[in-house]
Design a protein around this nucleic acid. Structure first.
Ligand code: ZN
Ligand code: ZN
Ligand code: ZN
Ligand code: ZN
Lengths: 134, 134
DNA sequence: CTTGACCCTATAGTTGCTACAGGCTGCATA
DNA sequence: TATGCAGCCTGTAGCAACTATAGGGTCAAG
């Protein structure tokens, strides 16, 4: 299997696959006589793993960790669980942050009366803290 | 006012201020005899604006746009409003994406039985799509 | 024998900073 | 006066996680 087919199969760009190889996430495949990369089932499985984990928002470092753990079939999976839970906590934090931001912004937009810039509450609120906001 | 004081006043790192100057977001200030940057009230106001907009999650391009608009005091602020509303829509999209992700991940974690890696549902779910998920 | 799709390497760009390295300036203290 | 040290200067490289060129080589079909 050459890189283009692997790319199509995993919905990954060719450049991304080469990038994963360069950073040591995907093992180097063999080469054909014409120096083309030649992938097998193991590569497909590993890249699928990476893509799924990335889709779930794990960082490349977390993916690396999960891959290392998954290679150690006999160990307990508490470590896997804790990586996943840590990631969940990060997501919760991000959601909370975005919600707070959304509230702020929504409030600001609600005050804009669509008049002149000089009267715009949005612009005013962004300016220096001369008068208190909220 | 020299750069360190401006940095402290606006809770911005010195390097960030120089960075904003380099990308043309903050106008170049005058210099002292010793070649130190010398800021005034206008710079403070502009940097405050930038910081607030950034805190609200606007990109630097959006900030640039808002700054340009805010300089044109007589115009209608519908353009400002539309920048802000576009940003709000982006935030809503991000929140929705994160929530979907969170649901997926939570479901996955709930299935982990804390046994051996080889039985771990998290690892399994990350693997190639041999059997359907969901 | 040429076209065109595919592959190769290497390097630079993206966003929004942050962190050096190596060198001035300016003020207080011994 | 010397010297120390905080603060400033420029310029460049690094972070995540790719993406996009440039400038070539390979391979099968027509
Ligand atoms: Zn508010
Ligand atoms: Zn307005
Ligand atoms: Zn699910
Ligand atoms: Zn498990």
């Amino acid at each position: 299997m050459q890189i283009g087919e692997l790319a199509r199969t995993t919905s990954t760009k060719v450049e991304t696959i080469r990038f994963y190889e360069k950073i040591g996430l995907l093992p180097e495949p063999g080469r054909t006589a014409g120096n083309y990369r030649d992938y097998g089932a193991a590569h497909l499985a590993r890249l699928s793993f990476i893509r799924r984990a990335r889709d779930l928002g794990f960082t490349l470092d977390q993916v690396r960790e999960l891959l290392a753990l998954s290679d150690d079939r006999s160990r307990s999976c508490t470590a896997v669980d804790s990586v996943a839970r840590a990631h969940l906590a990060q997501i919760d934090q991000k959601i909370a942050d975005l919600r707070a931001l959304r509230r702020e912004l929504d409030e600001l937009i609600g005050q804009c009366s669509q008049g002149a810039i000089s009267d715009c509450r949005i612009i005013e609120a962004l300016g220096p803290p001369s008068n208190a906001r909220h």
